[in-house]
Design a protein around this nucleic acid. Structure first.
Length: 521
RNA sequence: UCCCCUGUAGCUCAGUUGGCUAGAGCGCCGGAUUGUGGUUCCGGAGGUCAGCAGUUCAAGCCUGCUCGGGGGAACCA
């Protein structure tokens, strides 16, 4: 094996987050968390690693990596448990031990299902599990999730943050309707204008029912059709039609296989999807859908759910300008069973070549009544949604004229060894008064030059610098320089002496805390 | 993983049909200002032209391979 060099570099698809980006991220999280909490969700965290088989369909040692999950082996061997929770034994009645497969979470929903299921597990073992003791649980959670993406699209990462909220233990679509309103509230709390995004809602039951009624009745066929429809945004109507039929050759010359459905079926699917084109009113969309799927039980159930949601939104003041029905909305994840929702940002931006591009989807969610069942055998209905924190941060950076900058500490410059202790004393007092304070500690090459120190404070976006040198010490004062003001004035003043004189002030030593509190706290 | 495009300073990019010592702006460092962030002026550092092999008297420029980046396809639980 070749010896690896020690050139410092980070892993592809992962990022270092600087103070400014962290500031942005914190604002988003705090605003969203506050809204979630206000609806009654409690704050939980779960580990980044889970047993691989708890995370979904992925079983140890199948090609999990190809399917998007990072995985590892647990350091110690553990007994393998059977479906009843008992240790599996070999012929000699010895427990079968293995280094179990672990995987990094790829979203926050699967770990939630695990948390929930784990708390019910003892009851399951006692055979006492039944729907009546599946309790209602509402929690929100934020943190990094990990995806082993084969190819990194711009703005896509292998590590990124989500802030997620879910209600487990309710089959009432009121919870779904509420989730959409929460997304809308949260995005506004984060600072997006209501006119710049729209919540789109659909119901898988309607589509499933419709497809069933026209003869697409097995999961595999259905999945294939859904996947094609999911691409609509990207490839357009014509290409969707082609992919449902014989396939097509895309602009890069690659051949894409088609599903080879009969023409009349394709026609039906397309006209179903186009049913809401140009129609904004939720009630009109429902009416049209209703006629088309009449007689199919599942679809009718779905329609009834949409009706209920619509009625709630109407009563609570969420009209078509904020929430719409979109029969073409699909969502990638297979585990959704009912209502699905997505928030689309209506903002656009210009890319490097000056091409106008859409920001696209910034939140997603839906109902997943089967997820807990995969772990527990008990069907516990659940619904929830998630905001893509990093996407949103990027969006806000683009939308804001002024970049969000992290606020630095009050800065105490270093002049004199004999005053060093004094600097730390001042800092302590100011901290006790509630301020962030840094005493300059650079000591290397020319690091103690005034210019260096000032420039350091400036780059850290410090609001003020406190200068205490020999001159001040003799007089019993300190000089406080207002960097924030200086930044403002530098736009209009070009004379250096004037500029300096205007932004600094001598303050008596014993009045410093008072002065700083009044001006910079 | 497949197809197309692409790779010049920390960043964004010029560099003629192959021809002397490869440039600019921004950033960085130093000075004007020995105690002052911005502005202004002066000076400076920084390049294996992604790497390797080939064609040629001569390669940043042409050819092949490798690696990296972008776009599209597939995948997206």
């Amino acid at each position: 094996m070749k010896k690896r060099g020690t050139i410092p570099r980070k892993i592809k698809g992962f990022r270092d987050i600087d103070a400014d980006l962290n500031e942005m991220r914190q604002r988003i999280i705090q605003a969203a968390a506050k809204v979630y909490r206000s609806y009654g969700f409690e704050h939980w965290d779960t580990p980044v690693l889970e047993y691989a088989d708890a995370l979904g369909k992925f079983m140890p040692d199948e090609e999990t990596v190809d399917q998007g999950v990072y995985n590892f082996k647990n350091p110690e061997e553990e007994p393998i448990l059977g479906e009843d929770g008992k240790e599996l034994r070999d012929a000699g009645a010895k427990a079968i031990m293995e280094h179990q497969a672990l995987a990094m979470r790829y979203d926050l929903t699967a770990p939630l299902a695990r948390v929930y299921a784990e708390r019910l597990w003892d009851d399951v073992k006692r055979g006492q599990i039944m729907e009546s003791n599946a309790r209602l649980f509402r929690r929100f959670q934020y943190g990094p999730v990990y995806r082993y993406e084969m190819k990194l699209a711009p703005g896509r990462f292998r590590e990124f943050w989500q802030i997620d909220f879910d209600s487990v233990g309710t089959k009432d679509v009121a919870a779904d309707a509420e989730a959409c309103m929460i997304l809308s509230d949260a995005l506004q709390a984060i600072g997006l204008d209501k006119s710049t995004f729209i919540v789109k809602v659909n119901n898988r039951k309607v589509l499933k029912g419709f497809l069933f009624s026209i003869g697409i009745d097995d999961d595999e066929k259905e999945g294939a059709v859904l996947r094609v429809i999911d691409k609509l945004d990207k490839i357009g109507w014509e290409n969707v039609e082609l992919e449902l039929a014989a396939g097509r050759t895309d602009t890069s010359g690659a051949a894409i296989a088609g599903l080879n459905l009969p023409a009349d079926l394709i026609g039906k699917i397309i006209s179903f999807l186009k049913i809401a084109t140009g129609i904004k009113g939720r009630k009109e969309v429902i009416e049209k859908l209703e006629k088309l799927v009449a007689g199919n039980e599942l679809a009718e159930e779905g329609i009834a759910e949409l009706k209920k949601m619509d009625a709630m939104w109407e009563a609570l003041g969420f009209d078509e300008s904020s929430i719409v029905f979109d029969p073409t909305l699909m969502r990638g994840m297979a585990y959704y069973t009912g209502p699905v929702f997505e928030v689309e940002s209506l903002l656009t931006f210009k890319d490097k070549r000056g091409k106008t591009r859409k920001v696209g989807s910034i939140c997603g969610g839906g109902r997943y009544d089967g997820l807990v069942k995969n772990l527990l055998g008990l069907r516990v209905p659940a619904t929830g949604a998630s905001i893509g924190v990093d996407r949103l941060a990027a969006l806000l950076q683009m939308a804001n004229d002024e970049k969000v900058k992290a606020e630095g500490p009050v800065f105490i410059a270093y002049f004199d060894d004999s005053l060093q202790t004094k600097y730390y004393e001042m800092a302590k007092e100011l901290r006790q008064a509630g301020m962030d304070v840094e005493v300059y500690c650079g000591y290397f090459k020319g690091f103690r030059k005034m210019k260096k120190q000032m420039s350091y404070a400036d780059k850290k976006n410090c609001p003020a610098v406190i200068l205490l040198g020999e001159d001040e010490a003799k007089k019993g004062v300190v000089t406080v320089k207002n960097l924030k003001l200086g930044k403002e004035l530098s736009k209009t003043i070009s004379d250096k002496k004037e500029w300096i004189a205007k932004v600094q002030k001598e303050i008596p030593m014993d009045g410093l805390v008072e002065y700083m509190k009044a001006n910079f706290a």
